[in-house]
Design a protein around this nucleic acid. Structure first.
Length: 283
DNA sequence: CTGTGGTCCTGTATGC
DNA sequence: TGCATACAGGACCACA
C-alpha cells in the first residue's frame, strides 16, 4: 500500500517520538511479520528489549529504525503495514502484530492486515541494512543520479511502467504514483522505454517527483483506514489524483474517458487521448 | 536479460 | 441471505 510519500510521512512522525527512547518490552502478537528474523518470535522479543532508538531512516519504500548500538529494525510495510504511537490503554487494533512498549509510557505498534510486510533485525544495519542495499537511492536522496537513471531506463525494452515499479531502477514509486507520473507526462504505461527520448523520460521522472512532493506535503495518500499516519489519521491527497482509481471517469485534462487495463497482475489507468502508445524508436 | 504468473495474507465490493 | 469472484498503495521467486 504505502509508497514513498506515505512511508516518508510515517518516518517523519516516528522521528519526532523515537530517538532516545528505549524499548522496555517487545511483544510479537503474530509470528508472520517477523518471519525474516533468524530466531523464534520469543528470541526476537528478547533481543530487542533494552535497545535505544536513534533517528528513523528511509530509502524508497523501505524504512529502518536504527538503534544506538549500531543495529537496526528494518520495516517493509507491504500493502497494509502501519506504525502507530499510542498510549498503552488505547484500544489495540484488530491487526496489531508487534507491540513495543517504550520507556515514556507509550507504545510503538506495528499493525498489518495482510502481513505482506514485516520486521527484521539488521545486525550492524544502522547506516544501511543489507536487506535494503539492493534498493537504488530514491529521488529525494542526495545520492540520486538522474542522468544514470535516465540512461538505465532508455537502455531497456521493457514497458516504462514496469521500470518505474522496479525498485532497482528507481525506488519509492508504486502503482499510484506511477500512473500519476505517466498521466502527467503524457506517456502510455506500456510504451517501450527505449522508444522514449531523454526529454520524455525526464518528464516522467520529474512528474513522479512532483506528485510525490505534493503528496508528502499533504501527509500521504489514502482512500481508507489502510493507510494512516502514526496518529491514525488519513491523508487527503487522494482527492487530487488524476489517474489512479479514475477508470471510467473523464480525464481531467481532455475529458476523454479514462481507461483501465491489466498490467503486471494489477491495473493501469490512463487517458487514451493524452497518453498514446508509441512503439517506433525515436530520439 | 526479458516477461509472466503464482505466492504470501485479509478484507471489501460486486454480481448472481 | 449466501456464495463466488475480482480486486487492493508490494515484492519475491520459479519458470519459459
Amino acid at each position: 500500500m504505502p509508497e514513498l510519500p506515505e512511508v516518508e510521512t510515517i518516518r517523519a512522525g516516528l522521528d519526532v517520538h523515537l530517538p532516545g527512547r528505549a524499548i522496555v518490552r517487545a511483544q510479537v502478537l503474530h509470528p508472520r511479520p517477523v518471519r525474516s528474523f533468524s530466531g523464534t518470535p520469543v528470541q526476537f522479543e528478547t533481543t530487542l528489549a533494552g535497545r535505544v532508538f536513534a533517528s528513523p531512516q528511509r530509502r524508497g519504500k523501505y524504512l529502518w529504525l536504527p538503534f544506538e548500538d549500531g543495529d537496526a529494525l528494518v520495516a517493509h510495510l507491504g500493502m497494509s503495514g502501519q506504525f502507530r504511537i499510542d498510549t498503552p490503554d488505547a484500544e489495540l487494533p484488530r491487526h496489531a502484530r508487534v507491540v513495543f512498549s517504550l520507556d515514556d509510557d507509550r507504545q510503538l505498534r506495528f499493525i498489518d492486515q495482510r502481513m505482506f510486510g514485516g520486521l527484521e533485525l539488521a545486525s550492524g544495519g544502522a547506516v544501511l541494512p543489507a536487506s535494503v542495499s539492493h534498493i537504488v537511492p530514491d529521488m529525494f536522496d542526495s545520492e540520486f543520479d538522474e542522468a544514470r537513471t535516465v540512461e538505465r531506463i532508455r537502455g531497456s525494452q521493457s514497458a516504462i511502467k514496469r521500470l518505474l515499479l522496479n525498485q532497482r531502477v528507481v525506488s519509492g514509486i508504486g502503482n499510484i504514483y506511477a500512473d500519476e507520473a505517466l498521466w502527467q507526462a503524457g506517456v502510455h504505461p506500456e510504451t517501450p522505454a527505449n522508444s522514449l527520448n531523454v526529454g520524455q523520460v525526464k518528464a516522467v521522472l520529474d512528474a513522479a517527483k512532483n506528485v510525490m512532493t505534493t503528496a508528502i506535503a499533504s501527509g500521504g495518500t489514502s482512500f481508507d483506514a489502510l493507510y494512516v499516519n502514526i496518529n491514525g489519521d488519513s491523508g487527503y491527497f487522494a482527492l487530487q489524483l488524476n489517474a489512479y482509481s479514475r477508470a471510467g471517469l473523464p480525464c481531467s485534462r481532455c475529458g476523454t474517458t479514462m481507461q483501465r487495463t491489466p498490467f503486471m497482475g494489477r491495473s493501469s489507468v490512463f487517458c487514451p487521448t493524452c497518453q498514446r502508445l508509441q512503439s517506433a524508436a525515436n530520439s
